[in-house]
């Protein structure tokens, strides 16, 4: 199976002088095409930082990150922007939307950056995605006029506009109630089933239990790993059990 991302002994340092500390301390990780991976760990363990490093949002201080075999440290800022826009999708805990655009405009914004002639196609695709996640009727609403769950769905639509090879999620359900969180995870599961690789950063065992491989982090290192099968809607409680006992085992 082809690897989309290879992280090789990544080091990421914050602070200076005496205050300096390694948030990522030589982390190596690989993500395969179509794989559904999650990262767990306590606050400050470096899981979000790992995601920012793997997606090229932050530069690494040592080691390297390969995306489709290309070393991200050799790539210019603009090429990184292009990569993020065309090959990657992002969903964050907070609905990172521009306040002065309506829902539809926020969704099509990245796609519209360079592809103005295809506006009609882009809008059509956005409408299809919105219908699929159940927010078709919200397109002209302002972002302050809809619920958090609806905003997160809009965020997913935006991430999927470019049909990315991999979708990154940083606590995507962290700000939602359990009902909304479940619905969002259903959407993610469906998208993954269609072949998009995923990397979710989460605190929540219920989220991790939906993924096929869970990386556990502590103090800037991956300390353990749990492999499950692809989630098929069955035996969810057992999966959660496995995750929980692993967490207990390594003391997270």
């Amino acid at each position: 199976m082809n690897r989309i991302i290879i992280g090789d002994r990544i080091v990421k340092t914050f602070g200076e002088g005496d205050e300096q500390r390694n948030v990522l301390n030589g982390v190596s990780v690989e993500i395969n095409e179509g794989e559904f991976v999650s990262v767990m760990g306590p606050s400050g363990s470096g899981k979000s930082t790992l995601m920012y490093a793997l997606s090229g949002i932050d530069h690494v201080d040592d080691g390297k990150v390969l995306f489709n075999g290309k070393d991200l440290s050799t790539v210019t800022e603009s090429e990184l922007s292009d990569l993020r826009r065309t090959k990657m999708g992002f969903v964050f805990q907070q609905p990172t939307m521009l306040k002065n655009l309506n829902i539809l405009d926020n969704i099509i914004l990245p796609a519209m950056r360079s592809n103005r002639k295809n506006t009609a196609k882009i809008v059509a695709k956005a409408r299809t995605l919105m219908k699929r996640v159940g927010i078709a009727e919200l397109e002209t609403r302002d972002i302050t006029q809809v619920s958090g769950g609806q905003l997160q769905r809009a965020g997913i639509c935006r991430a999927l506009m470019s049909s990315p090879e991999i979708l990154f999620g940083d606590e995507p359900t962290g700000a939602l109630n359990s009902q909304s969180a479940n619905e969002i995870m259903d959407i993610f599961t469906e998208i993954n089933a269609e072949g998009t690789a995923m990397l979710l950063v989460t605190h929540d065992a219920k989220v991790a239990a939906r993924t096929e491989r869970i990386l556990f982090m502590r103090d800037g290192q991956i300390v353990n790993e749990l492999r499950l099968s692809k989630y098929d809607g069955l035996n969810f409680d057992q999966r959660i059990q496995k995750v929980a006992s692993k967490m207990l085992e390594i003391g997270i």
Partner: peptide
Amino acid sequence: RYSIAVMKVFGFTNSD
């Protein structure tokens, strides 16, 4: 700052 960060993460370049 926030809007700029949002746009950058979704692939807008500095020159954009």
